[in-house]
Each structure stands twice: as C-alpha cells, then as structure tokens.
Amino acid sequence: MHEIEKHLITEEPYYSPVGEEIAIFEASYRNGLPVLLKGPTGCGKSRFMEYMAWRLQRPLITVSCHDDLSTSDLVGRFLIRGGETVWIDGPLALAVKVGAICYLDEVVEARKDTLVVIHPLADDRRLLPIEKLGQILEAPPEFALAVSYNPGYQSLLKDLKQSTRQRFVALEFNYPEAMHEAEIVVRESGVDLPLAQQLVSFAGMTRNLKGSGLDEGASTRLLVHAAKLIQSGIAPTVASQCAIAQALTDDPEMMPAIFELADSVF
C-alpha cells in the first residue's frame, strides 16, 4: 500500500481562493457528491485540486483524459508477468480502494463510452463495477471524484453528455480580478507588484481579443511563465512575446498586433 503514499501531498500548495470554492468543495466532499470544475485553461483548477487534497489529507490521483483512453485504462487490466496473469488496478479503481481523490482532467477529451464507467460512481450508489473480475467496488466515504472541463473550446463533438454532467456539483473558475491575479503572479514568480500589474494588464488585452481573432486570452499560467522569465533577466517585452504571444496564436496578422500591445504596456 506504500504505492499510494506518493500521491499524498505533504506540503501546503499555494492556492489563493477566488470565491467560495473551498467551502463548496468541502461540503460536497462531506456529502459524497462529485465535483465538476469548469473554466478556461490555466486558471488554477489543478492547483485547487492539489490544495484540496492537501487540506483534506487524501491522496490525489490525476488522470489526464485523451481520446484513446479506454475503460481498462481507468479500471484496470490483466497483464502477464513471468508466466502468470496478474490483475493491475487502474487509477480509478486504486482511488476507490484507498479512498483517494480521483481527478479526471479535461474529461471531454475522453470518449463518451469510456465515461460511462464513472456513472454509477458519480451518483448515490458510489459503485465501481470491475467487469473483468466480476467485482463491484463500493467507494468508502473518503473517496471523491472530481472532473474538469473547459467550456471555452466550443467543439461541438466535445460536449459532456447531459447524463454525465447532471451528476456533478459544478464549480466555475475564472481568471481572478486584476489586483488578485497580480498578487498571484508576484507570489509564484517573485517579480515586483508594479511589473505583475503590467503583465496582468497585458493579459487583459489579450482576453479582450478572445472571440475577435483569438480563441483564448492569456491564462494566469502564461503570466506566471512570463514573470519567471523576467525574473531571470529577460526583458519584459521579450518575455511577453515568447511566453505569452507566441503561445496564443500563429496568425501572421494577430502576432504583430499582440507584440505591439506588449510594447505598449511596458
């Protein structure tokens, strides 16, 4: 069982709450309700999960979903080792057995037929059937299921089925307010506040462009990246170009426009 130890988070992760998400998550946890984290990329969803796992003192098992993810990848499979067949638990089964928090990142990326396995786990039955073993695992109260999803990518194929999404308590995440975001950037990178504010105001400009040429504006994550580069001696405009502008688009007209916004801010 020491395998699971490595999923325990021992040091308090830095997470600065934006609203009441901590209280809501705790209440859901105590009531055995699964949670859906909605929000754009890089706005602190993963960090929040780390923080909650630490706070609740449960191991955190994260699965990044992709379209080749099969039910066996989640639940487990037989392997042959030295002439014997052995059963290996998948991350979901493992989390249920040890009462961990299982976090399925970007669930929409997973195929719909794969996601069906979480249905009995995500309603009041809290059961995980393992077909190949003919077993049904019952989740202990310590177990929690959380999934994340970014509603911004308006891909029509990639929408959660109603029967999936209606099982979750939804928490909406967004970029923090300007001053708050600047503080996060300071804390994460060590740059000084005025510079962090300039970065945030630049991020605001790229967010204004969302929908008129950009699919997404700069995330808090990108700001932290740029700030770290600056802290290591790269000029702010250059850091904004490589860490932010280039990450946002390849469009030959959009790129210089964003460069110029960066040039204007610093």
């Binding site: 400009m205 790229t206 204004n208 462009l209 959009m254 426009a257 964003i258 110029e260 916004l261």
Partner: peptide, 12 residues
C-alpha cells in the same frame, strides 16, 4: 488595417 484592428480590439 487587420493588425491595427486586432490591436485596437485588445485595448480595453
């Protein structure tokens, strides 16, 4: 003009 319009759209 395309670049300028993007630029303008970025301003608050």
């Amino acid at each position: 003009e395309v670049r300028l319009l993007h630029f303008l759209n970025g301003l608050s």
